[in-house]
Design a binder for these strands. Structure first.
Length: 867
RNA sequence: GCCGGAGUGGUGGAAUUGGUAGACACGCGGGAUUCAAAAUCCCGUUUUGGCAACAAAGUGUGGGUUCAAGUCCCACCUCCGGCACCA
């Protein structure tokens, strides 16, 4: 055994042992409690980044800890392999996405293996392979048959120069990123999944997800956005048509002074037909990208159509406006506007000089003015005819009932959630298995013809448009029902489709006969899911929805896919730049920068190492290519070893918080491992192992042994319940600091050290498994550490005769006392008041006052209240 | 704009159920070891005053509840994540 800590050789050796033993390959074992631990699979961008390292280390620590608890642990890994970056790389480097992706997967797999992650690699999957995506084609057709799938028009970002559809991120400042053309909104036919049919269940079941972070549950619930209200319709002057709107405030119905419709609304288009100004306005509304955030931030604009709506109650005429902030895709694409009682309506009405009519008054007689702003609270109805004097709550029902009786409306439930558009006009995705026939319409591809394979030998042209849309050999086919020439669908699925069910496929990734099999029922639901907080809404909602779809098809038996969720924070790093001539920033990698500190160590300036000239700091931001502040894990693994990287990732911050990268922090983590290594080696060199006589310990030995088991107790809780690996590591550091101060050379002392090191190595093994496996052997163990159980607390070591209490006077710390563990409150109170410094504060400083009461908090403190 | 978070020493963070604010680590300062350096080890390190004992102040800002508030309540400021075609 060499005495130097050499991570490179021990990590390779330990990984080989795990490999040879197939330590992480698992099968269904009905006699053991299963634990399915899943980290969100990566997009194979080419290189592992720190976000991955952090995510996968968390998952690995949880998996290894659960394994030590005796569970049958499944931890798989795979690749979310379809997506835009492969297309971008293809355009840039003329490499086909399939080849580029395969290459990246091979590289990243190699990096992951060097991290020593306890994956069952036999279950590896890549979503871009036909043996994976064929099943989602199959499932899509099942859903189509069942009526969950339908086709309708939806808006996309259209690049008029490149003649392609752009993703939101490909639109920069309203222009196509490649062509620079102003993007236009365009309506095209797309496939949708009726997620709204499951809205209620998705919302109800959020409540059952008790082991999800509260913030994620709230975000999911808000995203679904259930609201109870009334759907009602306005008549249209000189027309038989009616205009339908939804409102959550029918009590304000009498305050409606206009109606607003989306620019794409049929009424708007009808009105524009002989109105040039309106046509221009509607056209101008198309020059925004479809992102809701952009819509919300833009200036609120509108134009009257000249058409009038007829109020369903009063029969009054109110103008119909076109407004750029009304979304066609939400509800009916029209809203009734009550400027007196809605902020946005108020602003719009004020801007365009539309009447503001107050119909709600405050309940408590507070004076209400709607000239300075909208009054949005509920209250009592005024100016509302027969409904005057009713509370908002009663008016809600009364008005709804009245509308129902007149056949002009009814109570209903509305969701903010919209159906899931799954069509993408992109190449690198799963082909949608549909054939279009002039006679038969959209015809499903027969099951025997699945999978529809995506051609991989392709070339992109400079427009970036999907190559298969220009490949007759792909899209020319015959109709499955009438055999006439027909056209294949060239759109592909949203990549959220793949990531919505991969967790289930891991349970039977080798099955080429069916999507899932009964192994899914053994492993599902996932016991612990770990991934970035950025997925809190979309991915998790789609996966939950997909799970319910699979359940309703009899493929899985649970209602929810992920029992417990941990959302990890981002990895941040220092960011530096220089202004360039164009006024933009040239981002400089942190490892090219020297930082100057003041006497206290605070960073005061930074210079570029190459020229010694100053650079500007942009503080901490998310590691990203665009800011050039990424740190390559590979370099760190080569320099310090995977254990150091794992340890630092877990130590720098608790998993849910963002984590700041620090080079010196990594060195600190490495220093700790070297210290641990040396301490153990010195202990081994100090003599042979002897048995600890726990009945005859010196006070010092008993104290240290108590510290050991207090640490174990804390670490068990930190790892198993709290997931605060940073404090688990800190507790071990504290314990080892105490051990290094413990200079007891006796046999008992040595025996105690043996017990401590054995336990510490078990405790740290989920985090730094290679060094621990190696030291385990050094301590003379013949078993493999990976097959060991989590240590048990020796309760007898925790017993204490005396404890220290702090003494406060009026809530301020004034002294400490030592009392017997079973001391009575009266004794404690007396002793506290007799303590030196405490006495001074009671008597000297507060001479004319007296002790009002004494509060004793068991095992913690005494507070003497003087007044 | 809407929804969801976060803010504690020079820095990352700890304080788990309202009960010792600053564990652990980084950095910095001092010392030991060394021909010298690296590495390692020891001591100190919230601020202010004091040789010290100790005292005062202190957890983004302003209020409040409580014997006791980083923790609970109200209002605000700043930063971050998501907003349906980035994944």
């Amino acid at each position: 055994m060499p005495n130097e800590y050499n991570p490179k050789s021990i990590e390779a050796a330990v990984q080989k042992v795990w490999d040879n033993n197939k330590s992480f390959e698992v099968t269904e074992d009905p006699d053991k409690e299963k634990f399915y631990c899943l980290s969100m699979f990566p997009y194979p961008s080419g290189k592992l980044h720190m976000g991955h390292v952090r995510n996968y280390t968390i998952g690995d620590v949880v998996s290894r800890f659960q394994r030590m608890q005796g569970k049958n642990v499944l931890q798989p890994m795979g690749w979310d392999a379809f997506g835009l970056p492969a297309e971008n790389a293809a355009i840039k480097n003329k490499v086909p996405p399939a080849a580029w992706t395969d290459h990246n997967i091979a590289d990243m797999r190699g990096q992951l293996k060097k991290m020593g992650l306890a994956y069952d690699w036999s279950r590896e999957l890549a979503t871009c392979k036909p043996d994976y995506y064929r099943w989602e084609q199959w499932f899509f057709l099942r859903l189509l048959e069942k009526g969950v799938v339908y086709r309708k028009k939806a808006t996309v970002n259209w690049d008029p120069i490149d003649q392609t559809v752009l993703a939101n991120e490909q639109v920069v400042d309203g222009r196509g990123w490649r062509s620079g053309a102003l993007v236009e909104q365009r309506e095209i036919d797309q496939w949708f999944l009726k997620i709204t049919d499951y809205a209620d269940e998705l919302l109800q079941d959020v409540k059952k997800l008790e082991d999800w972070p509260e913030q994620v549950r709230t975000m999911q619930a808000n995203w679904i956005g259930r609201s109870e209200g009334v759907e009602l319709s306005f008549g249209i002057e000189n027309s038989d048509e009616r205009l339908s709107v939804f409102t959550t405030r029918p009590d304000t119905l009498m305050g409606v002074t206009y109606v607003a419709v989306a620019p794409q609304h049929p009424l708007a288009l009808q009105a524009a037909a002989n109105n040039e100004e309106l046509t221009t306005f509607i056209e101008s509304c198309k020059n925004t990208k479809v992102a809701e955030a952009d819509m919300a931030k833009m200036e609120k604009k509108g134009m009257a159509t000249g058409m009038m709506a007829i109020h369903p109650m009063t029969g009054d005429k109110v103008p119909i406006w076109v407004a750029n902030f009304v979304l066609m895709s939400y509800g009916s694409g029209a809203v009734m506007a009550v400027p007196a009682h809605d902020d946005r309506d108020w602003e719009f009405a004020t801007q365009y000089g539309i009447e503001i009519k107050q119909v709600i008054d405050a309940v408590d007689g507070e004076s209400v003015s709607v000239t300075e702003g909208a009054y949005t609270k509920k209250g009592v109805l005024i100016n509302s005819g027969e409904f005057n004097g009713l509370s908002s709550k009663l008016a809600f029902d009364a008005i709804a009932e009245d509308l129902t009786n007149q056949g002009k409306g009814h109570k209903t439930v509305n969701y903010r959630l919209r159906d899931w558009g799954v069509s993408r006009q992109r190449y690198w995705g799963c082909p949608i298995p549909i054939i279009y026939c002039d006679d038969c319409g959209a015809v499903p591809v027969p099951e025997k013809d699945l999978p529809i394979e995506l051609p991989t030998e392709i070339e992109f042209d400079e427009t970036g448009g999907s190559p298969i849309k220009k490949m007759p050999e792909f899209y020319q086919t015959t109709c499955p029902s009438c055999a006439k020439p027909a056209t294949r669908e060239t759109d592909t699925f949203d990549t959220f489709f793949e990531s919505s069910w991969y967790y289930a496929r891991y349970t039977g990734a080798d099955n080429d006969q069916s999507m899932l099999d009964k192994r899914a029922d053994y492993w599902l639901p996932v016991d612990q899911y770990i991934g970035g907080i950025e997925h809190a809404v979309l991915h998790l909602l789609y996966a939950r929805f997909f799970h319910k779809l699979m359940r309703d098809e009899g493929l899985v038996s649970s209602d929810e896919p992920f029992s417990k969720l941990l959302t990890q924070g981002m990895v941040l790093a220092n960011t530096y730049y220089r202004e360039n001539d164009n006024g933009g920033q040239d981002w400089i990698a942190p490892d090219q920068v020297d930082v100057q500190h003041d006497a206290k160590g605070k960073a005061i300036s930074a210079t570029l190492r190459a020229d010694g000239q100053p650079v500007l700091s942009d503080g901490m931001s998310k590691m990203s290519k665009s800011k050039n502040n990424g740190v390559d894990p590979q370099i760190l693994i080569d320099r310090y070893g995977a254990d150091t990287l794992r340890l630092f990732s877990m130590f720098a911050a608790p998993p849910e918080q963002s984590m700041e990268w620090s080079d010196s922090g990594v060195e600190g983590a490495n220093r700790f491992l070297r210290r641990l290594w040396r301490q153990v080696q010195e202990h081994i060199a100090s003599g042979d192992e002897v048995v600890l006589d726990t009945k005859n310990l010196s006070n010092q030995q008993a104290d240290l042994r108590r510290k050991l088991y207090l640490t174990l107790q804390k670490v068990t809780d930190d790892m198993g319940r709290r997931f605060t690996f940073n404090t688990a590591i800190a507790a071990n550091m504290e314990l080892l600091n105490d051990v290094s101060k413990f200079d007891d050379k006796s046999e008992q002392g040595r025996a105690l050290r043996q017990e401590i090191f054995t336990t510490v190595i078990l405790m740290l093994s989920p985090i730094a498994p290679h060094i621990c496996e190696t030291l385990w052997k050094s301590l003379g163990k013949t078993s493999l550490l990976i097959d060991e159980s989590w240590p048990q607390v020796d309760a007898s070591a925790l017993v204490q005769e005396n404890i220290e209490l702090i003494v406060q006077v009026n809530g301020k710390l004034r002294g400490k006392i030592t009392v017997a563990i079973d001391a009575k409150d009266e004794e404690i109170k007396q002793q506290a008041q007799d303590a030196d410094n405490v006495k001074r504060f009671i008597k000297e400083n507060l001479a004319d006052k007296s002790v009002r009461k004494v509060i004793v908090v068991k095992g913690r403190l005494v507070n003497i209240v003087v007044a």
